[in-house]
Amino acid sequence: MTAGSDEPGGPAQAELRVPGRGAGLRDVARHRFLLKLLVDKEIKVRYRGSVLGLLWSYVKPGVQFIVFYIALGIFLGLEQSDRNPDGLPNYAIYLFSGIVLINFFSEALGNASRSIVGNSGLIKKIYLPRELFPVSAIWVSGIHFLPQIVILVVACLFTGWSPSILQLAVAIVGFLIAAFLATGLGLIFGAINVYYRDAENLVDMLLMVATWASPVLYSWEMVRRQLGDTALSIYMLNPLTVSVETFHYAFWLPTTDQQFALPPGFLPVWLPVALAVALFTVILGQHLFRRLEGRFAQEL
Rank of each mutant, 00 (worst) to 15 (best):
A179Y: 08
I188F: 14
L152C: 03
Q148A: 02
V150G: 04
G98S: 08
P85R: 07
L128C: 06
L166A: 12
I188K: 13
I99N: 06
D86Y: 08
L132N: 14
E131K: 11
A191P: 12
Q148Y: 12
L152K: 10
L132C: 08
G186W: 04
F158N: 05
P163F: 04
P129L: 06
K124I: 11
N90S: 11
F189G: 02
L128W: 07
N103F: 03
S141V: 00
Y91N: 11
A92Q: 11
G110P: 08
G184I: 03
A92V: 04
L168G: 07
L168K: 03
L95G: 10
P147A: 01
A178L: 04
V135Y: 10
S162R: 15
A191R: 08
G142H: 05
G186R: 02
A137M: 08
R114C: 00
A179M: 14
I99E: 06
A108E: 04
S97A: 15
L168W: 00
Q148E: 11
P163S: 14
G174N: 05
S162C: 02
I165E: 09
L109Y: 07
I177M: 03
L122K: 09
P163V: 14
L181C: 00
L157K: 12
C156A: 12
V170I: 14
P85V: 02
N84R: 15
F105D: 07
V117D: 06
G110T: 02
Y195P: 06
I172K: 00
A108I: 01
A155V: 14
L132A: 11
S106M: 02
V194E: 13
L181A: 01
A108M: 06
F105H: 11
W139T: 13
N193G: 00
